[in-house]
Design a protein around this nucleic acid. Structure first.
Lengths: 149, 149
DNA sequence: GTTGAAAAAATATTGAG
DNA sequence: CTCAATATTTTTTCAAC
């Protein structure tokens, strides 16, 4: 789908605050709210907008620790290994990467003890991985909400 | 702020779809929508809910490549280095980590050429970093929307 | 594609238990 | 804290340009 400047302006606003009323978006981009409605609907249908999500403070729901985990996968075990990773609670993202690691996970845990349990009981001892490294996120200095559009 | 099971149920729904009408949430958790409204407002005020964001398909807006970038920061240059990283377009997250890297960035770029520009012109040659490694994300196998609540 | 206006639906507010 | 009822605002639809 081709996006014009109006679409991009709408996306910028919705990335920032997905609950901005269409009437307010319309006012800001100087169009009618029916147009905004129409364009948003088309971007949703086309998969440009993938969804709307509340972002929840991890600490408020008991997750004190985040980490990135690099993994080396044994040859031929990829499919199986990934499938088991997906089932582990606390695993939020699984990325296939170039460089030092084949897979990088992003995980959350209640505290460092639980993170250790997660890593040693469920990941490190899991068949199919030859090496792992846990990089605990001490703090997140910066995080944009969305892409530069 | 203390969260009870009702609050958590609301958070689960809003993480999944931030535009779910309060009336629909009320129906699902078997409460009135005024209650939902009240609880959501309090969770917003308390910072439990940090915001609502549309998630945009990166490819649809021209970002074909994502990467994780590990960086080593020279002693005493941390503040200054981080500040300059924040200003680079395409840098979406800056995490301070334990382990092999001091800082891990998450970046997006239009294509691998642009990623190379970003990395070599703007990051690798930047003062204050002694080593860097770019891990291109070949694909994301799995990504949860939000936390396990 | 866009619009203004009407209809439908949702959210915000109020007052009381 | 929760609710029902009401007031307000937003979303959605639609004929017309």
């Amino acid at each position: 789908m081709e996006l014009d400047d109006t679409d991009r302006a709408i996306l910028r606003i919705l990335q920032e605050d997905a609950r901005t009323p269409f009437s307010e978006i319309a006012r800001r981009i100087d169009m009618s709210s029916a147009t905004v409605h129409d364009r948003v609907g088309r971007m949703e249908d086309a998969g440009v907008i993938e969804g709307y999500h509340a972002s929840v403070n991890p600490k408020a729901v008991g997750y004190g620790v985040s980490a990135l985990v690099g993994l080396r996968v044994e040859q031929g075990r990829e499919e199986d290994a990934l499938e088991r990773l997906r089932e582990i609670e606390g695993v939020r993202e699984i990325h296939l990467t170039t460089g030092e690691w084949d897979v990088i996970l992003r995980v959350v845990a209640e505290d460092t003890d639980r993170l250790r349990d997660l890593m040693f009981d469920r990941v490190a001892n899991m068949d199919g991985f030859s090496r792992s490294q846990t990089m605990i996120i001490l703090g997140t200095d910066y995080e944009t909400e969305g892409l530069p559009i």
